[in-house]
C-alpha cells in the first residue's frame, strides 16, 4: 500500500505551507495532493504557485495530484478549475462533478465529496476515465468490502485513514460568522486557525471544527489499528490529511507500521498523543462517525 498526503484543508501562511512541503519532500510519502479545495478567496498561493510547487514535488520523486474546489459557484472559480484541468502535467482530483465534466477523456481521481456509494456509480465514473477513487467518509468497512468485489479493473481505491474529517460545506463562512464579520469582509480570519476553530457543545464537548465554509470533526479519524483489514480489502492508498503539528511523526508512524517495524497498537497510541482533540473511527465500524470503537 502507498501513503498519500491529502490537500491542506486550512489556510496557512505561504512560508509555513512551503515549509510543510519541503519536509514532505524527504518523507516516505508516495503521493501528494496539493491545491486549494475549500475557499477561492484564499489566494496567498496562486494557481502558478501551486503548479510550481507541483514541479518541485515531482522532482523530489513524489506523484503529485492537483486537488480542486469542492464547492464551485462563481465563474472565476470555474476559470481557475479549467486551467488546472487543462494542465496535463498533473493528475487532477475532481471534488465536484463539474471537474469530472471538464476532465472528460483524461484520467482523474474522484475525491470523497463525489459521493461514490455503490458499484454502479463506480462503473460509470471509471468509464469516464476515473483511475482512483476516495472512499466516502461516512461509509463502513462492510460497504467498502462489497464495493471492492465489483471494482472495475485499473481503478485504485484510496482510504481517508487519518485527520479531522470533512463533514459539510456551505456557502456561508462559519469562521467569519464566529468573528461577526460578513463573508466579503472576512479579513481572512481562518489563517489564525491552522487546524480549524474548535466548536464545543454547551457542556464542553469538543464536537466540531470550523474551517471557513467547511465543517470538520473535532476528533481525528484514525484507522491505523485496522491496517490488516484494510490491506485484506485491497485498498491501494492510505490518505493522511494534514494537521499543523508533527505531521512528520504521523507519517513516520504509518510508514513504520506499513513496513512492519512498529506494532499497530503502539502506533495508534503514539498517534493519539499527536491529535488536536482525540480519535474516532465510528464510520468504519458502521456506527456514528464520532464514536471510537477500536
Amino acid at each position: 500500500m502507498k501513503l498519500s498526503v491529502g490537500p491542506v484543508l486550512y489556510y496557512w501562511p505561504k512560508d509555513r505551507l512551503l515549509e510543510f512541503y519541503d519536509v514532505l519532500m524527504d518523507s516516505p510519502v508516495d503521493i501528494v495532493y496539493i491545491g486549494e479545495t475549500i475557499c477561492s478567496k484564499r489566494t496567498l498561493m496562486r494557481t502558478e504557485d501551486w503548479l510550481e510547487l507541483g514541479e518541485r514535488l515531482t522532482a523530489a520523486g513524489k506523484e503529485v495530484v492537483m486537488s480542486t474546489l469542492v464547492l464551485l459557484e462563481a465563474e472565476s472559480e470555474m476559470k481557475r478549475l479549467r486551467r488546472l484541468c487543462a494542465d496535463e502535467r498533473f493528475l487532477v482530483e475532481a471534488n465536484d462533478l463539474g471537474a469530472v465534466q471538464l476532465l472528460k477523456g483524461r484520467p482523474f481521481v474522484a475525491g470523497h465529496s463525489v459521493n461514490i456509494y455503490n458499484s454502479g456509480t463506480l462503473r460509470v465514473l471509471s468509464e469516464q476515465g476515473m483511475k482512483r477513487w476516495v472512499f466516502p467518509l461516512e461509509l463502513s468497512s462492510q460497504t467498502l468490502e462489497d464495493m471492492q468485489r465489483t471494482r472495475p479493473d485499473g481503478v485504485e481505491t484510496e482510504l481517508f485513514v487519518y485527520g479531522r474529517m470533512p463533514l459539510a460545506y456551505s456557502a456561508r463562512c462559519f469562521t467569519a460568522r464566529a468573528h461577526n464579520l460578513p463573508k466579503d469582509d472576512c479579513q481572512y480570519r481562518c489563517i489564525d486557525y491552522p487546524d480549524g476553530l474548535t466548536l464545543s457543545t454547551q457542556d464542553d464537548n469538543r464536537f466540531l471544527a470550523i474551517n471557513g465554509i467547511q465543517t470538520q470533526s473535532a476528533r481525528t479519524i484514525n484507522l491505523l489499528g485496522e491496517l490488516d483489514r484494510i490491506q485484506a480489502l485491497g485498498v491501494d492508498i492510505l490518505r493522511i490529511s494534514p494537521q499543523s503539528n508533527r505531521m512528520d511523526q504521523v507519517i513516520g508512524v504509518f510508514n513504520r507500521c506499513l513496513e512492519g517495524s512498529l506494532d499497530l497498537e503502539e502506533g495508534s497510541g503514539r498517534l493519539a498523543s499527536l491529535m488536536p482533540v482525540g480519535p474516532c473511527d465510528g464510520y468504519w465500524h458502521g456506527s456514528a462517525g464520532m464514536d471510537y470503537v477500536a
Partner: peptide
C-alpha cells in the same frame, strides 16, 4: 445551510444521514 448531498453532520452524531 450546507450543500445538500455533501453534509454528513447527522451521521457523525447518529450514524444516519440524508444520503444513507
Amino acid at each position: 445551510v450546507m450543500v445538500e448531498g455533501r453534509c454528513i453532520l447527522s451521521s457523525y452524531a447518529t450514524g444516519q444521514s440524508p444520503n444513507t
